[in-house]
């Protein structure tokens, strides 16, 4: 049975605009994510996709509205155990090798003993075993993003939030990356939300949410204004 991982009601987010005013990035967004969900979050640049992902993942707090993680525990427990992140630009810790990057969330979670074994398994699963000792600077963009996805999976989260993970990859590499990810997540119950501009990627997700000027204009729940 699907469990509800995240429920957001009427959340908004604004920031100082540098001229004593404020700029609104999210407007009264309602949404929910269940286990096993495959959601594509689309919309033009600046529409609020990254901000929404940050709030859904507990990296940022909304300035209005309410967000809950019914099955994921308290706010403090979200990361690294329950939610994994993948970012658009290089997000590996540059001072650590690929293997250490993958095992890092486990070490942060106090599971140091299992970190190396899990890291090796995941790298193998993503076809990256031979890159374990490479520094991020020595990896291609596609390799780095697969390492980042392996890292997001290391601790066994229930939700993965990926912010344009293929944004810097060519279409072939992007498709390969996504094939690998979807295969890996199949039958795991892990929910995946991907912010993307790539229609081909979005088309492979079960659900599509569209952001426009801070409004969530389509999806299972919509912003109240729409």
């Amino acid at each position: 049975m699907d469990e509800t991982l995240v429920v957001a009601n009427g959340i908004g987010r604004d920031f100082p605009d540098g001229n004593a005013g404020r700029i609104t990035v999210l407007r009264d967004v309602d949404c929910a994510i269940s286990s096993g969900a495959r959601i594509a979050l689309v919309g033009p640049s600046g529409s609020g996709k990254s901000t929404l992902l940050h709030i859904l993942g507990g990296l940022d707090r909304p300035t209005s509205g309410r967000i809950e993680w019914p099955s994921l525990g308290s706010f403090e427990e979200l990361r690294p155990r329950q939610i994994g992140f993948v970012f658009q630009s290089p997000s590996l810790f540059p001072a650590l090798t690929a293997g250490q990057n993958v095992g890092l969330p486990m070490i942060l979670a106090g599971e140091r003993d299992a970190a190396d074994r899990t890291s090796a398994l995941l790298l193998d699963a993503f076809g990256l075993a031979e890159l374990a000792d490479k520094l991020p600077e020595e990896l291609s963009g596609g390799q780095a993003q697969r390492i980042a996805m392996a890292r997001a999976l290391a601790i066994g989260p229930k939700l993965i939030l990926a912010d344009e993970p293929t944004g810097q990859l060519d279409s072939t590499t992007a498709q390969f990356f996504f094939d690998t990810v979807l295969n890996r997540l199949e039958n795991t119950g892990i929910a995946l939300v991907v912010a993307t501009h790539d229609d081909a990627i979005a088309a492979r997700m079960a659900t599509r949410w569209t952001m426009d000027h801070g409004w969530l204009r389509s999806g299972p729940y919509r912003s109240k204004a729409t």
Partner: peptide, 12 residues
Amino acid sequence: RSFGILNAIGAK
């Protein structure tokens, strides 16, 4: 940014 990523992947 490196520290931001560490925070994002769960570093307390």
